[in-house]
Design a protein around this nucleic acid. Structure first.
Lengths: 178, 178
DNA sequence: GTGTCAATTGACACAGTGTCAAGAAAGAAG
DNA sequence: CTTCTTTCTTGACACTGTGTCAATTGACAC
């Protein structure tokens, strides 16, 4: 339902109706709507074999490859978690727990960014003008959901467009050009 | 109030209290909270002399300068409209009119992006791999509020950090490196 | 037959937006 | 000094959606 309606159209009553149980029964299983959304996020992550998908970027032999492959992973992964992620983002402003849960997910994504930048550093291939931390911050920011939203939803980019151009941006930005 | 609380803490009752009139009197002047927020956005824009601030980037003699000066403008301008902008963004999901109003503001920002990319094209200085439209999309996305939020609020970057590094990213990404 | 567990129904509290009706304060005009 | 108009106030209420509570039902186990 979240995927279909872009994060909306999934009130507790809607979910109850769709699953064929009463609204109150939902509260017997999840202590709040946020709790349900978080559980859904985690479940979705499990279903999608994140570890397996991350394998290629982890196996990369150079920093440049790691950067490129991580973007490839993310560009394929993000659309699949977008629905529930969006729902979580939409209640961030009113719900502390939702904000924390989503921040945690984004923090996990940040680990990948850190690994990619560190791989560039190991090759002595990080472009001039970046400290390690600033580069990680910038790369992480580039991959955040609102950018994907703007490019694919507002601007109509395809998944391929997104991945390809993000790779271009990241390489030109972070890889020393010789 | 919006600036102080980062877009929150300004319910109709709060605003009424602060201004010393009744909550209902607010509805005599603004037909809805969104209407008030939009009016505030426009008023703020007027107060800040947008045209004057844009002058330097418009006067740029090269595409590279135009790109750099537009980011400079934006990096100084955005923090001043962030409060009310954030409030508008926060109700986007529930309020169609707010979404439209904010989209309109972002569209105005996009004009500046278009002008900068066109200036690069005029110099035959747009980096390989970009069509005009894709470059405008990408540059516009880079400047969107969530990126500024992530970098300054989440990552603790200063205004100078933001401007400087965004300039670096944009130049490496969009300017042909010779 | 009794206990337990999950579910149901229906009612209600709460926050915040927006609406409505009745009246009050204050100045302008005769 | 009255009368009209405009603006504001007070207080009540509707609506949406989340979350809570109490009483009840149905099913299965022992």
């Amino acid at each position: 339902m979240l995927v279909e309606h872009g994060g909306k159209g999934a009130r507790m009553a809607d979910i109850a109706k769709e699953t064929g149980i009463s609204r109150q029964a939902l509260y017997l299983h999840f202590k709040s709507r946020t709790d349900l959304l978080v559980a859904t996020t985690l479940y979705t992550g499990d279903q999608l074999d994140v570890e397996g998908r991350l394998a290629p970027s982890r196996a990369a032999t150079s920093g440049v490859d790691r950067l490129r492959l991580y973007i490839d992973f993310w560009g394929n992964f993000l659309p699949e978690i977008y629905g529930v992620g969006k729902a979580l983002m939409m209640v961030q402003d009113t719900d502390e727990a939702a904000a924390a849960a989503w921040a945690d997910r984004m923090d996990a994504m940040r680990d990948g960014c850190r690994a990619a930048i560190d791989a560039l550093l190991a090759d002595d291939n990080l472009a001039d003008g970046w400290t390690r931390d600033k580069a990680i911050d910038a790369f992480w920011t580039m991959l955040l959901v609102p950018n994907w939203e703007a490019l694919t939803i507002d601007c109509g980019w395809s998944k391929t467009d997104y991945i390809h151009h993000m790779q271009t941006i990241a390489e030109r930005t972070f890889v020393r050009q010789s």
